[in-house]
Design a protein around this nucleic acid. Sequence first.
DNA 1: CGATTTCCCTGGCCGC
DNA 2: TGCGGCCAGGGAAATC
Length: 283
Amino acid sequence: MPELPEVETIRRQLEGELVGRHIDDAWAFPHAKFDQAHDAVGGTFTRLGRRGKYLIATLSGVAGRGEPDPTTPAGAGVELVVHLGMTGRLAVVEVNSLEDTPHLRASWTLDDGRILQFVDVRRFGRIAVVDAGDHRSLATLDRIGPEPFDDAFDAESLRRTVNASRRAVKTQLLAQRVVAGVGNIYADEALWLAGVHPASRRLTRADAERLRDAVREVLQAGIDHGGTTLRDYRDAHGGTGTNQHRLACYGRFGEPCRRCGTELRRTVIDARTTTFCPVCQRR
DNA sequence: CGATTTCCCTGGCCGC
DNA sequence: TGCGGCCAGGGAAATC
């Protein structure tokens, strides 16, 4: 379940390995979610970026595809966009390890002879190649909210957005609109840290400020500790993160709250398991 | 248009 | 040992 910290960890690891490399060839699992991997052939990595949970590699030397977006500058190259879904992994490997790779969904042969592999057991991931900046084919990315560490993610817009809707605050955090990159783990962590009930539909100004700070704090901690490995997540070197040892709330239902000792409870919001402290996080 | 629902996927685990 | 049932859940598409 890669969220922003996990994707950022992978981005940092792959950036130096990919920038400057030319893509000589590609293979894709025959499925609409992955077969755009072929469209990156002929490109050269010029940048490896990230928006929320989307990894965005900018490629030069590849012709644009389809109908151009009038709002996007022409000639800016294309982007190879990868979403890791639930179980996606990216890694650069030597040629001889290409064979016998279970659940391989795409691979790109680089001009140094190595191979960038995308492995995804459950196929919740997705690959797209688009004109740079043209995200119309990726609905969530097209409407994605500010990066959490950007000034545009401010307490007042968070408060207004949550209060203008009848949806639960946790739903808003997961929707990628008010802020980008938060998934189930870091949503539970941030709401616990801020003392906000996940089903709350109304934030005070003080709530919003604490929640904004908490989102930034838990995501930064996740990055600092190489991501959270609970089951499937591995970084680009096949390693695990260590942030799972620091989780205060997610998955700890039935165990005592680390602030007040009350037994953490479990509920379901948006078909997602949600853990919270009934004392620290009042509605 | 916003909100809600459905579907996609497979490995791991549990009870019998 | 085998197997059915259940769970993990982000995002896209369909529907309300």
